[in-house]
């Protein structure tokens, strides 16, 4: 608990918020898209579990442009 108090949340909060934005945008796009490269459920797990890198991987590899 001591650790949590020593952290400056005004600086950590933006980090968490933009990570969440990235994740949310990737998930919304995944749901809206009909087709992805690879199964959809797999991408959902990757986006949710792999921090930062997961959504980026989805945008770079997983998205199929039509």
């Amino acid at each position: 608990m001591e650790l949590l108090e020593s952290v400056n949340w005004a600086l950590i909060a933006p980090l968490i918020i933009i990570q969440l934005i990235l994740m949310a945008v990737a998930l919304v796009d995944l749901i809206k898209n009909d087709k992805t490269n690879g199964p959809k459920w797999m991408w959902a797990i990757i986006i949710l579990v792999v921090n930062i890198v997961g959504p980026i991987l989805y945008f770079v590899i997983g998205r199929r442009n039509h």
């Binding site: 980090l15 933009i18 934005i21 930062i52 980026i56």
Partner: peptide, 16 residues
């Protein structure tokens, strides 16, 4: 393509 979302966000994350 959401490039205007994920590219700036990634660069900001890399920076901080």
């Amino acid at each position: 393509n959401y490039k205007w979302v994920w590219v700036p966000i990634t660069f900001i994350l890399l920076g901080i």
